Amino acid sequence: MKFNSKILYVDDDKENLTGFEISLSRSFGIETAENSQVAYSILQSSDDIGVVLVDYKMPKEDGISFVDRIKDEFPDLIFIITSAWADMDVVIKAMNMNCFYGFIQKPWNYDELTITLKNALEHFEVKRDNKRLNAELLQQNEALEVAIRREKEANRVKNVFLQNISHEIRTPLNSIIGFSNLIKQNLPSDTKVAAYSDLVIQGGYELLRTIHNILESALIFSNQVVVSSTPFDIKAMVNRLVGEAVDRVAKKNLTLQCKGIDEVVIVNDELKVQYILRVLLDNAIKFTSKGSISISVLDGSEISDDEVVLVRVSDTGMGIDKKDIDMIFQPFKQVDDSSTRQFGGSGIGLFIAKSYAELLGGRISVESEPNRGSVFSLILKKSLAC
């Protein structure tokens, strides 16, 4: 194994230094120093020393004192103490300092010395590489935290902007819709102005829904949707939505049926549940050109152990290919781009509906075939713990 790091051998005996370098220079990179002062200078000027082999008995400053003096300045180095004395007190003193990797007694067995130095260098390089990797990971984590903070701030600014701009748009829109209704109420229903008023009112409500959907999708993307829970009768909600849809269904010569409607009171987020059901019903009407639409509410606890409620919206419309079902729940997408021009819509509704359902602890499933209609099923918890 080739090492990138060198060994520094410190000994006051020049013959020992020469013999060490000649014997081991083929296996290791070697630096030598004849006293602690020279060794310290080498360490200060070199960044490739990994192991320091230091003789215990040296004039002016012994090996243990030298290591004790510099260990805090060079905390990553591997220190090995060596001595010609078979004095266990020296070994014990060195080991108790917790900064020595090992002890080698002179005269050396060069095979054992080579193994010890090899292990020490491997230990140093693994420790150095781990330290480098940890530093890189720490730097990456810090960069990631900065990016997350910036993203959060960008989302906050974006949401504040969307809220402000939606307020600025909604205010004049409400005035337009209100005065258009007032004009319509004071004109005969068969005049052109009354018909134009209907178009203005319809366009105003569609624009309001689009603004609401854009704002809600932004809150969903930034995980800032607030969920609340109140008790309400989901059967009454369905009946109310069906009543609102009667005129649109009649204009398309469709039939709208309510099947198996159970009276079920649940504790959930009423506004979000209403939004989900309105999207499912509106889509059924939009994408059905002939036939019928049906909606049912079933008490799920009667058919399973789960305290849930099941709402199904069925239609005989254009249907969806199985491979495209996941796509319809993605934001701003429809199965066919031409559908946007033919049927209108921004492609946000089902994305918000699915997101709401999951936030409320439920789910939406779809069964559909092209040209044979679709069945959208909403499963909700009867009681939502907020």
Rank of each mutant, 00 (worst) to 15 (best):
A194N: 11
L182K: 10
N181D: 06
K192M: 06
A195K: 13
S189T: 12
S180M: 02
L199Q: 08
S180Y: 07
G178F: 07
N186E: 08
N181F: 01
L199Y: 05
F179A: 10
S189F: 06
A195L: 12
N186Q: 13
A195D: 11
I183G: 00
A194W: 00
S180W: 06
K184Q: 02
D190Y: 00
V193M: 02
L187N: 08
P188R: 10
D198M: 12
I183F: 09
K192P: 07
A195S: 13
F179R: 12
G203N: 15
D190R: 04
F179T: 05
N181M: 08
Q202A: 15
V200N: 03
I176S: 03
F179N: 08
A195N: 13
G204H: 09
D190A: 01
S175Q: 13
V193W: 00
L182H: 06
S175H: 09
L187P: 02
S180A: 12
P188G: 04
V193C: 01
V200Q: 14
S197C: 15
D198E: 15
D198S: 13
N186A: 06
I183E: 01
N181S: 03
Q185F: 08
P188L: 10
S197Q: 07
L187Y: 13
A194H: 14
S180P: 02
I177H: 05
P188T: 08
G204C: 09
Q185D: 10
K184T: 01
K184H: 07
Y196T: 15
I176E: 01
L187V: 03
N186T: 13
L182Q: 05
Y196G: 11
Y196E: 14
Q185E: 14
V200L: 15
N181A: 03
I177Y: 03
I183S: 04
Y196F: 10
S180N: 05
I201K: 12
S180V: 03
T191I: 06
Q202K: 15
I176N: 02
V200R: 09
A195P: 02
K184F: 05
D198C: 11
L182Y: 02
I176Q: 01
L182P: 03
N186F: 14
S180E: 03
Q202D: 15
L182D: 05
G204T: 11
G204V: 14
K192H: 07
G203I: 01
S175F: 11
G178D: 07
V193H: 01
K184C: 00
K192E: 06
Q185Y: 09
Y196A: 14
P188E: 07
I177G: 07
S189G: 10
T191R: 03
T191D: 03
I183N: 07
Q185M: 13
T191N: 04
T191H: 00
F179Q: 09
I183M: 08
A194K: 11
G178E: 08
P188C: 07
V200G: 09
G203H: 07
V200H: 08
Q185S: 14
G204D: 13
I201Y: 02
S175T: 14
V193N: 02
S197P: 12
S197T: 15
F179C: 10
I176G: 00
I176A: 02
Q185C: 11
P188V: 06
K184G: 00
A195C: 05
N186I: 11
I177W: 00
